[in-house]
Amino acid sequence: MPLRLADLPRRRYGSPGNAACPGCPETMGLRYVKMALGDNVVLVIPAGCSSVIQGIRPKSGINFPILNIVFASAASAASGMSSAFEMLGQDVKVVVWAGDGGTADIGFQALSGAAERNDDIIYICVDNEAYMNTGIQRSGLTPYGAWTTTTWTGKTEPKKPLPFIVLAHNVPYVATATVGYPQDFIEKLRKAATIRGFKYIHLHAPCPVGWRFDPSLTAKIAQLAVQTGAFILFEYENGRFRLSPYSGMYRDPKRRVPLEEYLKLQGRFQTVLKDPQKLEMLRAEIDEMWRWALLLEKGMASPELKK
């Protein structure tokens, strides 16, 4: 059932006057978490921009109860909290809200452990493709060729295929989403909330500061990432893999918007645009993601393996 915006209650979802930069995808994404799940939610946040966005005591710039915790422990702390709520008989959703660095690199062992134990949490990786809070350092999720302050001539390794790595843990639910299509993200969150066990949602989150684009373009660039095929929207549910409608039509590369349209709006890709060989490498990274997606769509995953 498609979501009608007018049906969403008129209320405060975010917390205005926070410390986020103008055009921030993280504050955008947090509003959608509130729209999807309401108030019965506790967030677990490891270090990152979302720690800073909260501001300084006694006020908080994020409209949720939050446990701030070290990188290495976000998923484990959430697992413990979820068990505690269960023992108390309280129906509270425990949601990890962690950056790409905090997920793919520093907090990966805790994520993998919680997935393996199938703990009852929703883990959201908010992927702005670098360590933004500390000044735009490259992460395992920075794409090939992108400039960061630690990759001056462009990153020389491809982006980790993290959603597929989590999927390989055979958890009940894995999805990708983007701040460019909030209704899709909200629907996926709502579905995740009905499933027991470990749920992972990978949220693509273009950052104007780190990607070097005008803050008015956050939503447009997020949509272009999908339309050019650079970011694939899908759902994996109990062993079944499905491309989401927004990505389904881009299975055929000929129907995609040219990749350059996405790259040219971002300062971080300027060297890629000038170097045909680098552009080919970036295309290869994207093709590889599609290869995974189409293989899974053909039914690689065996339903008997599901938890």
Binding site: S15, P16, G17, N18, A19, P22, Q54, G55, I56, R57, P58, K59, S60, G61, I62, N63, F64
Partner: peptide, 17 residues
Amino acid sequence: APISYPAPASSGKTGLW
């Protein structure tokens, strides 16, 4: 425990930015 509560203006009147 240093507990904060959601409230507008945690970083001031950001309209000034």
